[in-house]
């Protein structure tokens, strides 16, 4: 244990070192560390926020997708319904048309039949008149006896 002037030298050195460290070393390093800590904290917060945003967007997208699917299904349903309705309607209209055409045909046939009947009736009247003329062998005033003929014709 030999204390000597070295003690004083070391004491001065220690004081100077501590003073220098306090003034020029500690503050900038600590400032850099604090700044970085803040940056990292901010970054972490931002990433957390982004994650939350992403989650939100994903759930929103899922919702929208489901909605779209629902709508699509609804539209397809409607379209199917409409298609079957159309088919039904067309079928019914076809049926009606057919009925109409058939009815028309029937009425036309009826009219033709009536017309032919009339014609036939007229020819038969003329024939009857000619036959009667011959049978009577005399001239009969066709105009005077026409009411009889008319009656005859009507009876046919």
């Amino acid at each position: 244990m030999n204390f000597n002037a070295t003690l004083i030298g070391q004491l001065i050195a220690f004081t100077v070192f501590v003073g220098f460290c306090m003034k020029f070393v500690w503050p900038p390093i600590m400032a850099a560390i604090k700044e970085r800590q803040k940056k990292i904290a901010d970054g972490l917060a931002a990433s957390e926020r982004a994650e939350k945003d992403l989650e939100l967007a994903q759930s929103k997208a899922t919702d929208q997708l489901r909605e779209a699917k629902d709508q699509a299904a609804q539209i397809i349903d409607q379209a199917k319904k409409r298609a079957s309705q159309l088919v039904e309607e067309e079928t019914q209209r076809g049926h009606a048309e057919r009925e109409k055409i058939i009815a028309q045909g029937h009425s036309e046939i009826e009219a033709e039949k009536n017309r032919v009947k009339e014609e036939l009736r007229k020819q038969v009247a003329a024939l009857a008149i000619a036959g009667a003329e011959r049978i009577l062998q005399r001239e009969i005033d066709a105009d005077a006896q026409s009411d009889i003929v008319e009656k005859l014709v009507e009876e046919l």
């Binding site: 204390f3 070295t6 003690l7 070391q10 220690f14 501590v18």
Partner: peptide, 14 residues
């Protein structure tokens, strides 16, 4: 330097 008692005492006196 820390095996010199002057150094350690300088530190502790500070």
């Amino acid at each position: 330097p820390t095996t010199d008692i002057n150094t350690t005492f300088a530190l502790s006196i500070g």
